[in-house]
Amino acid sequence: MLKLFSRYISVGVINTALHWVCFGALLHFFEATQAVANVIAFFIAVTFSFFANARWTFKSKVTSGRYIAFVTFMGIMAGLTGYIADAISAPPVVTLVTFSGFSLIAGFIYSKFIVFRDAK
């Protein structure tokens, strides 16, 4: 289980970097708004995360149902974290750190026991 979690963390680090690079590039080169840049960067990063975790972390089959389940869950977590942060006027860095930590743990549990539950 520790090896599996270590792989999940590795994918998460790359996923986070990908999200930040895409976000920055969309802002800088395409003059996108933060909202548009964040949504596009989220979908790029979560798609990478799904495929990397399916193949490398869980060694599982990629299906459209699994993809939809993974993206929906991660999107709901991101949205709820942002909503709560707005409601309590949390600084953006607190939101980012909180979401990163929570999504690491909750995303791993959800992936292991729901999305990729039949993985070997």
Rank of each mutant, 00 (worst) to 15 (best):
F73G: 06
D118A: 13
F51D: 05
N15G: 05
F5S: 06
S89M: 10
L2V: 14
F50L: 09
V115I: 14
Y67C: 02
F102S: 11
V36Y: 01
I88C: 06
L26G: 12
S111V: 06
T81L: 04
G12L: 01
F50A: 01
V46I: 15
S111F: 07
G101M: 01
N53K: 08
I40D: 02
I68Y: 00
F5Y: 13
S6D: 05
T72M: 13
F43H: 14
F30P: 03
I109S: 01
V71G: 04
R66H: 08
W20Y: 14
A87F: 12
N53C: 08
M1E: 13
P91V: 05
F70Y: 15
F42V: 09
G12W: 02
T16A: 12
R7M: 10
L18P: 02
L4R: 15
Y110F: 15
T72H: 05
F73H: 10
L26C: 07
A90P: 00
P91Y: 03
R55M: 09
T72N: 03
G65V: 11
S49G: 04
Y8R: 04
L26N: 11
A52Q: 07
F58C: 05
V13K: 02
V71W: 01
A25H: 08
E31F: 11
I76Y: 00
V46C: 09
F70V: 09
T98H: 00
A41R: 08
F99A: 07
N38W: 03
Y83M: 14
I9R: 01
A32I: 04
Y8P: 04
S6W: 02
S103Y: 04
W56L: 10
T63C: 05
A119N: 09
T47S: 15
L4I: 09
I68C: 13
I114R: 08
M74T: 12
